[in-house]
Simulated scan of single mutants.
Amino acid sequence: MASNKISLADWQAKMNPGASKAAPTGDNLVYSTESGRIDNKPQVKAVAEAYADGAVRIRRETKGRGGKAVLTISGIAKPNDELAALAAKLKKKCACGGAVKDGVIEIQGDKRELVEQLLQAEGYKTKWAGG
Rank of each mutant, 00 (worst) to 15 (best):
99 A>K: 08
79 P>A: 15
101 K>D: 04
39 D>Q: 11
12 Q>M: 10
117 Q>N: 13
6 I>Q: 12
122 E>P: 06
45 K>V: 15
51 Y>E: 12
125 K>C: 02
51 Y>I: 09
107 I>R: 00
47 V>I: 12
94 C>A: 15
108 Q>K: 08
120 Q>E: 08
128 W>D: 01
31 Y>N: 07
120 Q>R: 04
49 E>P: 00
97 G>N: 05
48 A>R: 06
100 V>K: 00
129 A>K: 02
127 K>C: 02
74 S>R: 00
34 E>Y: 05
121 A>T: 09
24 P>K: 10
46 A>L: 03
114 L>Y: 03
18 G>V: 13
83 L>R: 04
17 P>N: 05
65 R>I: 11
86 L>Q: 02
93 K>W: 06
108 Q>P: 01
51 Y>C: 09
95 A>M: 09
112 R>D: 03
56 V>S: 04
55 A>P: 02
6 I>T: 13
85 A>P: 02
65 R>T: 14
5 K>S: 07
33 T>P: 06
123 G>N: 04
46 A>R: 06
63 K>P: 04
21 K>S: 10
56 V>C: 08
18 G>D: 15
119 L>P: 03
69 A>W: 00
71 L>P: 01
45 K>R: 14
78 K>H: 14
117 Q>D: 13
110 D>C: 07
1 M>G: 09
49 E>L: 03
15 M>S: 15
46 A>D: 13
84 A>P: 00
73 I>L: 09
77 A>P: 08
14 K>H: 12
36 G>Y: 10
83 L>F: 10
34 E>C: 03
73 I>R: 01
48 A>M: 10
14 K>Y: 13
3 S>R: 06
27 D>K: 14
129 A>S: 09
8 L>D: 07
119 L>H: 08
66 G>D: 12
62 T>E: 15
7 S>N: 12
103 G>M: 05
126 T>M: 03
55 A>M: 06
126 T>V: 11
63 K>R: 15
47 V>M: 08
66 G>N: 13
75 G>N: 02
114 L>I: 11
113 E>A: 08
103 G>L: 04
59 R>K: 15
91 K>V: 02
5 K>T: 06
63 K>V: 13
17 P>G: 03
46 A>H: 05
97 G>Q: 04
27 D>I: 08
34 E>D: 13
8 L>A: 06
30 V>D: 05
15 M>R: 15
53 D>H: 11
94 C>Y: 08
49 E>M: 05
29 L>R: 14
72 T>K: 05
97 G>W: 00
93 K>M: 10
101 K>E: 05
107 I>H: 00
107 I>G: 00
91 K>L: 02
54 G>P: 07
20 S>G: 13
116 E>V: 07
124 Y>F: 15
93 K>R: 13
73 I>E: 01
120 Q>I: 01
11 W>R: 15
66 G>I: 11
64 G>I: 05
31 Y>C: 05
94 C>E: 14
88 A>C: 02
107 I>S: 01
127 K>M: 07
10 D>P: 03
126 T>H: 01
88 A>E: 09
27 D>P: 10
42 P>M: 06
11 W>D: 15
58 I>T: 04
